[in-house]
Computed example of a mutant assay.
Amino acid sequence: MNPTTHTDFSIRNARIVTATDVISGTLSVSQGLIQGILPDTDGVEGDDWEGDYLLPGMVEIHTDNLEKHLMPRPKVQWPVLPAVIAHDAQIAASGITSVLDAIAIGDIDPDSLRTQMLVQCVHGLKEAAAAGILRADHFLHLRLELAQPDLINLFTPFLQDEQLKLVSLMDHTPGQRQWSDIAHYRTYVTGKRGWSHEKVDKMLDLLVERQHQHVALNRRKLIHLCRQQRSVPLASHDDTTAEHVYEGVAEGVTISEFPTTLLAARTAREHGLAIVMGAPNRVRGGSHSGNVSASELAQHDLLDILSSDYVPASLLHAAFLLQQDGYSLPKAIATVSLQPARYAGLSDRGQIAEGLRADFIRVREVHGIPVVLGVWKQGRRIV
């Protein structure tokens, strides 16, 4: 699916959304790059988009979607390559042309298959890319569960991987950050993981003990590795208090993923961190964990990047909904394109601008819902 040849072409009568404007005009593509953007004029040749939106291909920096294909049921492991192919197809069909696959290293559940599948998962992504069968561009976002006892040994082999674009530091221990409310945690694990209330009670003591033993030490070692061996962007995860943000800033964190409170988001903004919120949160109208809503943060201008998290199709939908929170359409679309591309170090994409990659999507609003009608990467149609 990777482009090998390029065709020059033009698209006319499109509502082109740039980083700052919406232009009714014509887009020309040459050699896989955007050659020009012009207002429509009579007699212009090209494919007529009939007033549909032409948006930049979306850039996703944190999606758990691959994991859903690898583990379609608790403790059920699906073959890796078919899972990767299915994941990629869903990503591309959602209008995402570049994706940082958020792969967890470690888990709060000692029985989880995550750690067992880690190497196979990364290998499967590389194998599919090498075979040229992936539609989207895939990179790595390693999510490090700090309470994992052997976390450093598991992470170190991936530190120099050229596909690694982001590392996030997570602590999902009950009573911490996202799960400050134990009742919400209990509802989540009994529902998604199928734990009985008896198992939850047994696990609480174990998880808290693991947190005390490993989180602080693992965090110090990981920060040292990322600073000394490679300058990979760092994200904090589920910041809840101002102190959580202060800790991340001191460690060189540049992104605050899914802050759980308005206070944490405001503190992140004061310290120049990019703020990421979940697109499902915005589409649903609130957090499934009972935390601050993406809409509330947007209304305070405290949302820079949207992530599809666990629903790829939510990314575009949520971006359009941000217009209800006071964002212009260009600013809303930047949360799923320009901003994530910038913070992931992908400077050749993320907006409709001359000289950048011709990664773009055709979108039509139907009853207020943005529908992806076509997807192009480097000027070649992939969906």
Score class of each variant (00 low, 15 high):
D101E: 11
C121Q: 12
K199W: 07
P149T: 03
V99G: 05
I275N: 05
V29D: 08
V249Q: 01
F258Q: 03
E162S: 05
P149W: 00
G32W: 00
S307L: 03
D101M: 03
I333V: 11
E162H: 11
A353M: 09
S30Y: 11
A341Q: 03
E251W: 04
P157M: 07
L321G: 10
I105H: 04
L303F: 05
M117V: 09
H138R: 12
H197T: 15
R177S: 00
L54Q: 04
I34G: 02
E247F: 11
Q160C: 15
R381I: 14
S295H: 08
P259Q: 06
Q211K: 13
R220W: 04
R362A: 07
G32S: 06
A264K: 00
T240N: 06
P3A: 08
A353C: 05
N2D: 09
D21W: 05
S196G: 09
Q116S: 15
A268T: 10
V372K: 02
R349D: 13
E247C: 14
G36D: 14
L322H: 02
H237W: 02
G285W: 07
E270Q: 09
I255V: 08
P74S: 14
W179C: 12
D40E: 14
D137G: 10
A216D: 15
H224I: 03
A92W: 07
Q176L: 08
R362N: 06
H123D: 12
V22E: 11
L322Q: 08
F360I: 07
W49Y: 13
N65T: 14
Y246H: 12
S98T: 13
Y310T: 00
A183P: 10
A147G: 14
L263S: 11
Y327A: 01
A319R: 00
S337P: 01
R380E: 03
M58K: 12
V245T: 12
F158L: 06
I108T: 08
D359Q: 13
A183F: 01
L206K: 14
C121M: 08
Q148G: 01
A102N: 00
S112T: 05
H138L: 05
Q228N: 14
R114C: 00
L134S: 15
K126C: 09
D171T: 00
E354G: 12
L66E: 13
D304G: 09
T26Y: 06
E127R: 15
D201H: 11
V276P: 00
D48C: 01
L100T: 08
V189F: 04
Q378G: 00
G124K: 01
V311H: 09
G36W: 05
A14V: 05
L297K: 05
R220E: 13
Y327D: 02
L356T: 09
A128F: 07
M203A: 10
V44Q: 15
A250N: 07
G191Y: 14
G57E: 01
T20I: 09
V371Y: 10
S289I: 07
F320H: 10
